[in-house]
Write a protein that binds this DNA or RNA. Sequence first.
DNA 1: CGACGAACTTGCACAACCTGCAAAACTTCA
DNA 2: TGAAGTTTTGCAGGTTGTGCAAGTTCGTCG
Lengths: 198, 198
Amino acid sequence: MTVEMGLRERKKAATREALIRAAVRLVLARGVEGVTVEAIADEAGVSPRTFHNYFPGKEEAIVGPMVDGVRELIDAVRARPADEPVWESLRHAVVELLQSVGHLEETIPLLRVIKDEPALLAWHMRGFAELQEELCATIAERTGTDAKRDPYPRLMAGTVGLAIRVVLDLWTEGRTDTDITELFEDAFARLRAGLPTP
Amino acid sequence: MTVEMGLRERKKAATREALIRAAVRLVLARGVEGVTVEAIADEAGVSPRTFHNYFPGKEEAIVGPMVDGVRELIDAVRARPADEPVWESLRHAVVELLQSVGHLEETIPLLRVIKDEPALLAWHMRGFAELQEELCATIAERTGTDAKRDPYPRLMAGTVGLAIRVVLDLWTEGRTDTDITELFEDAFARLRAGLPTP
DNA sequence: CGACGAACTTGCACAACCTGCAAAACTTCA
DNA sequence: TGAAGTTTTGCAGGTTGTGCAAGTTCGTCG
């Protein structure tokens, strides 16, 4: 995947990474209101102006990890064998993603902060919307449907997004001790079955 | 519904309404970037400071109509007979809402602007997230499930939200000439059937 | 190697945003 | 009418986000 990036692009990626890390760390420590763009830039060792070359605002940087995760999911779906049923491709890709989630100790508090802060939640949701749009395109491609007219690929993409979101929510609230993968499999299966009353 | 509000509250509601109208009109005319809070406040006949007493930023005002629509949906669901199956209550409530949508000529362009502007899309999606949370509570109440542990009410609320969003998207892009209500019924039915391949 | 062109960083300036605070205007109720 | 409570408004001040131009670093070709 990471094929021979020149020093230039490596540096750029590193800066982006550093900014995201700094943003997340500071927000977890001081809360969203207690963090300024200047502080994040400082922590990452660049000027505030440079921060704005990477992100329009601090929200985008904080939500950064999620957006990156989204990219991975899309790639994972694309990497599945082309003759596999779409449902299965999606299920496998999500499970892979959930199992490879690092920083669990950091992810949960971050999700909590996001949920509590309207501005963060907004950008987080937008990230999901983006995911669904790309997923939709991928699905349409696979199934040979027309994403512009047929509701099918959109509904499918939305269903996957929904399952992920619900599982993440439940998991974040910590009311369940079930494994997150299992939680997802359950939710996904229910949706595939038309959500029968339990 | 509007039960005997004193002059005070009526004025407040009117101001809010005026601000939303002003915001939407200006945005449709000049685009998001071309509109300042000051201009919106001017158009509505109040001071900029007053604008901020009602909305934290212009995004919230622009997305206002959608949020209000959400409230109506929740009320409509609550108004359905308690012994009706939840699926049916939801379906009826949404259909009622879709049929009572006024300002069609204004709604479509507004949705387009929202879709194109990241900041607006973000707040719009957040509005939907709010909807789903409230819907979830209502559904949990109806079905006697525990929204904190059981994925069921969340999945159901999410499914409804998904159907609405997909239909709105398709409709906004204007690629279809199907009636929006019919579009929704179709999407909803598919989801209830577990989204079979067409 | 060396030097040129492209890309990235930075400071500066500026307009807009948003919030707290206190004074003024208005509504409510007795 | 007058007291109590609510809303509007101006002001002050910190934060945000972007365009521009100058400086710096990287890639490449002679």
